[in-house]
Design a protein around this nucleic acid. Sequence first.
RNA 1: GUGGUUGUAGCUCAGUUGGUUAGAGCACCAGAUUGUGAUUCUGGGGGUCGUGGGUUCGAGCCCCAUCAUCCACCCCA
Length: 453
Amino acid sequence: MSKPSLPQGTRDFSSDTVRKRNFIFSTIRNVFELYGFQPLETPAMENLDTLMGKYGEEGDRLIFKILNNGLNDPKNSSKATEGFHKALEGKSSPLLTERALKYDLTIPFARYVAMNHGQLTFPFKRYQIQPVWRADRPQKGRYREFTQCDADIVGSTSLLNEIDLANIYHSVFSKLGLHDYRLKINNRKILLALAEISGGAEFLTNITIAIDKLEKIGIEKVKEELSQRSLSNSQIERIVNYLNINGTNQEKLLKIRALFHNNMTAEEGIKELEYIVSRTTTVNIDIDLTLARGLNYYTGTIYEVKAPDTVQMGSIGGGGRYDNLTELFGVPNIAGVGISFGVDRIYDVMDELQLFPQNVNIGTKVLFFNMGEQESWFAYQTMNKLREKNIACELFHEASKIDKQFKYAERKNIPYVVIIGSNELDNNTCILKNLAKGQQEIIDIAVLSEKLV
RNA sequence: GUGGUUGUAGCUCAGUUGGUUAGAGCACCAGAUUGUGAUUCUGGGGGUCGUGGGUUCGAGCCCCAUCAUCCACCCCA
């Protein structure tokens, strides 16, 4: 047996990390609950055909597929061989694999709604916090197993939902202390209108992929890319005019209205943006007309959250409105809108900016020193009384040197130690020491629990 | 999927043009001293140099493969 190791792009989380992650999870969960969302969990794996074709060609390639069992059974051997040959041609085949690890939370949610729409109360607001898997090459801020926190509302076209979701973003990031996040908003209808006036609706994907890169590669490169995607110079000119729109949210809305004259599709999108932006003035939301987002099921509002500029990290959240997500599963006319938090990236950003509160890593509150046989047994009984009052404590396991016991407390980030030696035992007292302050006091054993609450 | 970086003790890293038994600091363990984490002193355990091949009289060092890592592209959270 060689040295044990982990699969590429996966991680163990040590207790420190788990505590910090839980701080993020509980913050998000509490806010979701505050806005009336209900929890949902779905399996780690889905049927492959539930997932395939929902994330584009690139997405399909990144889905972790699970090999069928029983391929070694002689009576399956011809099927297995056939399936294998298809795999060599780059096609996945149910003969070889018919299940896969989930790639995001939205599609499994859509599958759930399609299966249960008869029982659900609409509008249905659910939140979901679960790991997802992508067969991507790992790098900074990118893992093969990571956790998403999604909140979606289905069965409602009200823009109040969009306003709720913007407020959720603001509330969560404020509570996490991540004040410099940037929430961007755009509308797919505007992008669709842009495609219509500069080439045709079929260019939507090509155009969005190109303009999405504006911030990263600059206007000249975007022009190059657009011409490579077979757009004419006059078409590119229109797009450049669009991309040149700047200013405050209000100014952008004015300019874009002028640009599109009376284009019906654009006007719809503009009205929606206007509505949302005018009602979310407390959440520092920015209209970003270059925001496109890759997932092609979005049809209206789109959101993206960027990490503070001081850290090298792209998107830490995103979402949008979709008209007909469940139609893919045979249930039409259920509209929805949702957002997602990328916990792993939020963790990395918060860690880098040292935004975690000091006390997230406190587990045990008090360590009782072990000062000998009789002393420690008395300490043990005292400790149990504290536990009844919900104070987490532990007794050092043997009567070791003092400095060793101190080190243990320090490493476990235990804020208090209690020392009961022979003197204290005789007097019914104990020494309570606050390790952070380095201060200690001798107190009556009877008042110990009050001091620690 | 494409390109590059790195891999030596628990941690951070040395290790010369290839040359005896692979080192340091910190950490750890034991002991001396001490009713309060220090300092000091003495002793100790630990590494198949990521893994597998190859070249060589000889490989931590050179070559190939592989795994992992980090980074960039693509795409994305």
